[in-house]
Design a protein around this nucleic acid. Structure first.
Lengths: 220, 220
DNA sequence: GATAAATTTTAGATTTGTCTAAAAATTCAC
DNA sequence: GTGAATTTTTAGACAAATCTAAAATTTATC
């Protein structure tokens, strides 16, 4: 098992790596709120554990096992955030710090059981995709219907949540994967949407529902 | 705030204090799975934080602020256990170790929101009372099954220990909280018990096992 | 391409919590 | 109540993760 400090470094490198190919000691030190000397020490340690490829003076990249670990930490973090907001009523602005602690709780079955309890959500409360147990996550080229410009045609590509509640509701509204959707109206008052389904049926969707409808641009 | 190690010592002293007025260094060392020298160091440290009254060579007792802290840790631990069993489907034998980690997650509103979400439960899955935010909890005067007169009907209300070993054994014998128990026979030779469970199943329990089965008189 | 500026690493110290071994205090046994 | 056994504390060391200050390396500038 890895220490909390080690896990935090791996997660930090993972996030910085999304922007640039390789991560510098200084950038990581700033991101981790620590000093460059401390970063160097930790990189040498994580190098021996084969979690990353570290070239002194030339920055660091996660190895494949480092990426795997990072994705598992990100998974834990985002599932706990989802729980904090959608189960016990925190606002999405307060959950990050709590999830930073919860993500380090170690148990072989905990996260899988939490995932099932939550309905295997695909996105956390901030809209970030939640990696599955194999590290796969929703293609972030999807956007939720709430972010689509009125008038534009899009295709219903995925749901952001797999609860019976949501499924029943989608069925009731006559919505299924592959449907062509056009936002006819967006009301500022409650951010609800009026959509045209397959250029035929009209339906009114709440903001909360719209967020769980993930869409992509139609194939040309 | 207090470190995980500090919180664990406070919790350990609290539990040992329930049995005896004052807690010895060695008893605490055994309970904490550490060495007496380490205990002495920590006691001196917690003494300066006014969490306990420590008299060198003569043991330790929690101060009133130490008791308050202990009760808050116990509250966190038992609420998380309740969540693990009743919300996400763990068996009662596996939750103790996870709750040991979760109990140290720090946030001013977390435990109150969790408590509300769970419906403010009064007892954890092992039958132990959950302190409220002011440290108050259900007053329980359980006796162990070994002290019950043969023929009397009692109710299995709590376990005296929370090891996976014990939980597995109870599960195997088909014993769970709320069961009606009657001591059918007590053998002087090894002090083992023969009990009738819910007026149906019979089971033989060793003295050691019987001591860990805490019961109360049935409601009238 | 030499030198200055910036970055990174090394060396050595610090804090927290732990350990072993030895010394000190208490308790037990007769 | 004295000596032995037990318990507890002290002294000194260690591992993890951090720090500051100095040295080494890379990058930028002219």
């Amino acid at each position: 098992m890895y220490s909390v400090a080690e896990e935090n470094y791996i997660k930090g490198i993972y996030h910085l790596q999304q922007k640039a190919r390789s991560v510098s000691t200084n950038a990581l030190a700033k991101h981790m709120n620590t000093k460059a000397a401390s970063v160097t020490d930790m990189l040498k340690k994580l190098q021996t554990k084969k979690l990353l490829d570290y070239e002194p003076y030339y920055g660091v990249r996660l190895s494949s096992s480092g990426i795997k670990l990072a994705l598992s930490i990100v998974r834990r973090h985002r599932l706990w955030e989802y729980f904090l907001v959608n189960s016990i009523g925190f606002g999405w602005e307060e959950v990050h710090e709590i999830a930073e602690q919860l993500e380090h709780v170690q148990h072989p079955a905990l996260i899988e059981k939490l995932d099932i309890f939550l309905g295997r959500p695909a996105f956390d409360p901030h809209g970030d995709p939640i990696p599955d147990i194999d590290g796969k996550m929703a293609n972030v080229h999807y956007v939720s219907l709430t972010e689509v410009e009125p008038g534009k045609q899009v295709v219903f590509a995925a749901v952001g949540l797999q609860t019976a509640d949501l499924m029943n509701m989608l069925q009731h509204k006559g919505l299924k994967l592959g449907d062509k959707l056009k936002v006819a109206e967006r009301f500022d008052f409650d951010q609800s949407l009026e959509v045209l389904i397959n250029n035929k049926k009209k339906a009114t969707l709440s903001f909360k529902l719209g967020r769980m409808i993930l869409v992509k641009k139609p194939e040309v």
